[in-house]
Design a protein around this nucleic acid. Structure first.
Lengths: 331, 331
DNA sequence: CATCTTTCTGTGAACGTGCACAGTAAAGCC
DNA sequence: GGCTTTACTGTGCACGTTCACAGAAAGATG
C-alpha cells in the first residue's frame, strides 16, 4: 500500500497536478469547483505532501535546528531550555516548520552541526547558550539566518538575539538590599565568560559603585555546589556581610546551605537574593526572594526574530525584556 | 555559488555518480584509486549529501521524532526530559539520524503529529510520557516503529519501552522505613493514570500489605503544591504518622513545607522519602532520602530499542532497570 | 584458448514535488 | 468584431540522489 502522491489526488479530483499544487501552496487561481473536489480527494486519499520532494525543488527544508552549546550535563539543571524548546516547537509548528535538535558541546559535535547547516539541511539556526568565542559562530556565518537566545558576546560576528535584561535585574535586587538598609552586600556571580555572569555583576556594580569591592565578590559556575563553595569563601573572607546577591537560584540554594552550616540565620543575619525564579526558588527554606526573567517572552521573541529573518528581513534589532523582583522570605 | 552536488564530486574525481554514491553508502566494489580521488574531491568541494534527494528515493527520512505528550507546563519541572533529549540526540547522531521534536498536548497538536508521522516524515517515533488511553497510540499503529520512554499502560496496543523499576524503588523505600522501625507509614502518590503513579503505589503495598490502608494514602499530581496539599490532608486524617513515602522529590519538597508548617521535625517526628533523586532532593532542608532512577540508562535503552526496530527487528522486549536507595538526612 | 568468476565502472530511470510556460475560455472594453 | 484583460488549467522539466542493470577488465579455471 503506497502512500498517495499528488498525482493520485489530482486523478481522484479530476484535475491536474498543477492545480492541486496551486491549492496546496495557497496560490490564487483555483476555481471553487476544483477547490472542493481537491479537498475531498485529499481527505479521501489521506494525502500529505512529501516534504523531501518539495524540499528538493524549493531548496527549503521546512526545519529549523536548535543548537545546544552547553558542554555536557549542564542541560540537566536548567529549566529554561524546556521553556524555550516548548515555545519554539509551538511557534514553528504554526508555520509548518519542524524543530530539530543538535548538540555542540565538543569539537566533533560542532563539526557535525556545521556540516548539517552548511549542507543546507536547515532554514534557520537557533543558538542556545553559545559561549563567547565559539568557533561555531564563524563557521555558520554565511549560511541560513541564525539567532541566539541570550546575547552572544565578544565576537565581531554579531548575531541577533532576544534576552532578559540581566543588568536591570541585578540592579533591582541590589537596590532592594540597599532599601532594606543592608550595609555589607556581597555577590556570587556566574562564570565570567557568559553574558549572565558578566551582566549581572555589572548591574550589581551599577548600584554599589566603589562599594562593590573585590572582597565582596565570589564566582560560581551556576551549579549548586559552586554556590555553596563561593558562600563559604565569602564568609571566611568577609564575615560581616549582611546580604548576598546570588546570580542564580540554584547557586543560591547552595549558598543557603553554607549559611546554615555557618549558623547564620536567613534573612535575619544575612539576606539572600537569587535570580531566575526557577522552581528551586520555592523549594528552598526559606523560599527565595529572586528576579523573575520573562522566560516564555524571551523564547517567543527569539523565535520571532528568526522567523523574520527567514522571511527575508535584512536586519533585525536585538530585543531586551525587563525583569521583575519577586519578594519571598529570604530577603 | 551553488552547493556542490554528487555530479560535481564525480567530475572532480574523474569518475561517475554511481561510484561516488557507492562510496558514500559504504558499498564494496570501489577501487582504492577511485576511493582516494573521490575522498579528495569531497573535501575539496566541501560536498555534503542532499538529504532531501536521498530521502526521495530511499523512502527514509533520516530522522526520528520525539513526541512530548505532557499537557502543558509540566515539561518545565522535570529534568528527566533533558537527559532523555540529550542521550537521544547523541545516540541518533551516531547513526546520522536527527531528532525532531513535536508536542502532543492537545487535540490539534496530536493531529499534526499523526499527519507528520503517517506522511512518512520520520523513520521512528519516540514517545514520552504518553498517558493511558492516548488516541495517538492507535493512530500511530501501522506507521514506522515506535517506542516509549516509560511504560504505556491500559492499551491493547502494546508498545515497547524502557523504564526504571518503579515498583522495586517503592519497595526499597518502604522496606527502609520498616527497617528504621517506623510504624505508621503513609504515602503520597502521583496521578493514578500514570505508570509512575500506579507502580510506586503497588511497591508500597507490596511491603505493607493490609497495613497500607486508604487513610494512609493521598494523591498528588507531581507538582510541589500538590505534595504540600496531600501532606496537610494526611496530617489531618492521621495525625500520628511517623513516615511518609512521597512518589516524587518535587512533591516531597511540598510535603516538607507542610510538615514544617505543622511543627513536625524531619526526620525525628516524621521520616520523609522522595523519588527520582532529582536536583531538588539536595536543595531541600533537610536533604531528601530518595530513590535514584537510572535516567541516562533508561534513555539509552529506549533509543536502543527504537534503533533495533528501525533496523528491522520484528519484536523487542521491554527493558526494566533497577533503582537505588539514596540515603540522606530526611529519613 | 574459451569460459567463468570477481571486481569494478558508467548509465538511465525513478522518487514526488514546484514552477515557468503555454494555452483556453470568458468577460470587459473601445 | 477585434483586442486586451482576467481567471483558470495542464504539461514538461528540474531538483539530487539511489538503485538495477549492463558491461568491461582482469584473473582463475577447465
Amino acid at each position: 500500500m503506497k502512500r498517495p502522491t499528488i498525482h493520485d489526488v489530482a486523478a481522484a479530483a479530476g484535475v491536474s497536478r498543477g492545480t492541486v499544487s496551486r491549492l496546496l501552496n495557497g496560490d490564487k487561481y483555483v476555481s471553487p469547483a476544483a477547490r472542493v473536489a481537491i479537498e475531498r480527494a485529499i481527505s479521501e486519499t489521506g494525502y500529505v505532501v512529501n516534504r523531501a520532494a518539495r524540499s528538493l525543488v524549493t531548496q527549503r527544508t521546512g526545519s529549523v535546528v536548535m543548537v545546544l552549546s552547553e558542554p555536557h550535563e549542564k542541560l540537566f539543571e536548567d529549566p529554561n531550555y524546556s521553556t524555550l524548546i516548548r515555545v519554539a516547537i509551538r511557534m514553528l509548528a504554526e508555520r509548518d516548520l519542524s524543530l530539530v535538535m543538535m548538540l555542540a558541546g565538543n569539537e566533533g559535535d560542532r563539526e557535525r552541526v556545521v556540516r548539517y547547516v552548511r549542507g543546507g539541511h536547515a532554514d534557520g539556526v537557533l543558538l542556545v547558550s553559545t559561549h563567547a568565542g565559539d568557533p561555531l559562530l564563524d563557521a555558520l556565518k554565511d549560511g541560513p539566518p541564525a539567532v541566539s537566545c541570550g546575547p552572544v558576546i565578544g565576537r565581531e560576528t554579531v548575531i541577533p538575539y532576544a534576552a532578559a535584561d540581566d543588568r536591570l535585574g541585578a540592579r533591582q535586587m541590589t537596590e532592594y538590599f540597599v532599601r532594606l538598609g543592608r550595609k555589607r552586600i556581597a555577590m556570587i556571580t556566574g562564570p565570567m565568560d557568559t553574558p549572565g555572569g558578566i551582566q549581572r555583576l555589572e548591574g550589581f556594580a551599577d548600584v554599589l559603585g566603589r562599594r562593590a569591592t573585590k572582597r565582596l565578590i565570589a564566582h560560581g559556575d551556576w551549579t549548586q555546589a559552586s554556590g555553596e563553595r563561593a558562600m563559604k569563601e565569602l564568609l571566611e573572607r568577609t564575615p560581616d556581610i549582611d546580604a548576598v546577591f546570588v546570580a542564580s537560584d540554584l547557586m543560591a540554594a547552595g549558598a543557603l546551605a553554607a549559611l546554615r552550616a555557618a549558623g547564620r540565620r536567613v534573612p535575619d543575619d544575612v539576606a539572600v537574593g537569587g535570580f531566575d525564579d526557577s522552581s528551586v526558588a520555592v523549594s528552598t527554606h526559606p523560599p527565595l526572594t529572586t528576579i523573575r526573567q520573562p522566560l516564555a517572552e524571551t523564547a517567543k521573541e527569539t523565535v520571532r526574530l528568526l522567523l523574520a529573518l527567514i522571511d527575508g528581513a535584512e536586519h533585525v534589532e536585538p530585543v531586551v525584556l525587563p525583569t521583575e523582583l519577586i519578594i519571598r522570605e529570604s530577603a
